[in-house]
Computed example of a mutant assay.
Amino acid sequence: MKRYLLLVGLAVVLTACSVHVGGRPHPYYAPPPQVEWRWDPGIDAYVVLGWPHLYYRDRIYYRWHDNHWYSSDRHDGPWAKGPKGVPPGLNKKYGKPGRGPGGGGY
Rank of each mutant, 00 (worst) to 15 (best):
N91F: 03
G77E: 09
H75A: 15
L54R: 13
Y56C: 05
P25G: 04
Y55H: 08
K2P: 00
G50Q: 10
R74W: 08
W69E: 02
I43H: 02
P78F: 03
Y4H: 02
Y62F: 14
Y28P: 01
L14C: 14
N67S: 10
H26S: 08
Y62T: 01
H68M: 09
N67G: 02
T15K: 04
D58I: 08
R57V: 09
K2D: 05
G105K: 01
R63H: 14
L6I: 15
M1K: 08
R99N: 05
R63D: 06
Y29T: 11
G103N: 10
G105D: 12
G102Y: 04
L14Q: 11
A80S: 13
L54C: 12
W37R: 06
D40Q: 10
K84M: 07
E36T: 15
R38A: 14
A45Y: 01
G85V: 06
Y55T: 02
P101V: 13
G22K: 08
A16N: 06
P52E: 12
K2Y: 09
Y94E: 05
P101G: 15
W51Y: 09
Y106M: 05
V13P: 00
R59P: 00
K84I: 02
R63T: 02
P97I: 01
D73N: 11
V19N: 10
G22P: 07
Y4A: 07
L90M: 03
Y4V: 15
W37D: 02
H53G: 08
D73H: 13
S71E: 03
W64S: 03
D58K: 02
G95R: 14
A45W: 03
Y55F: 12
G42C: 02
R99K: 14
G77A: 06
L10G: 15
G98Y: 02
G98K: 03
P83W: 01
L49A: 08
M1H: 07
D58V: 05
G89N: 05
P31E: 09
L6K: 09
L10Q: 00
S71V: 12
V12L: 15
R3E: 12
Y4M: 11
G100D: 04
Y94I: 00
R59N: 10
Y70R: 04
K92R: 15
H65A: 09
D58S: 15
V8D: 04
R74F: 06
P27G: 04
W51R: 15
R59Q: 15
W37S: 11
